[in-house]
Amino acid sequence: MPACCRLTLSNQLTAIADTMRQVEQFMTSHRISNAAVPAALLALEESLVNIVTHGFNDDRLHFITVDVTLSDKQIALEITDDGIPFDPISLPPPDRSAPLEARPIGGLGVWLTKQMMTDMRYRREDERNKLFLLKEWA
């Protein structure tokens, strides 16, 4: 039986750490303690930082929701925000032929998320961005 929780945070960087802590507690309270946990937390933080930093072009307060679903061998995260349309999956991968120190550091978080997660999908629905992240393990 999957376990679900929904968390809401404001579009402020200071709100991210508390959300991360709550998601981590939710995972450990459901006895998920394998390598999927840090991978999912990393994907969550990278995505939230991107949304909060680049997702809004006004000074209004916005709210972002995080839906977490835990099942036997899966962690699913869905992040919803009402910011400007942004599909992180469309970002080009970093130029791996350039020396690391010469590469722009932006985009590294999205790239890392793609590497760490089993699946990553984006859709725009009802004027909202919906980012789905899945981590599976054997």
């Binding site: 840090p38 937390l41 990393l42 933080e45 930082v49 120190e101 550091i105 590294l108 978080g109």
Partner: peptide
């Protein structure tokens, strides 16, 4: 250290560039 994200890597890269 239990966790690192790209924000942490960015700091390490900055120090690397400064020390090099």
């Amino acid at each position: 250290l239990t966790y690192v994200s790209s924000a942490g890597l960015r700091i390490l890269l900055k120090v690397y560039k400064q020390l090099k």
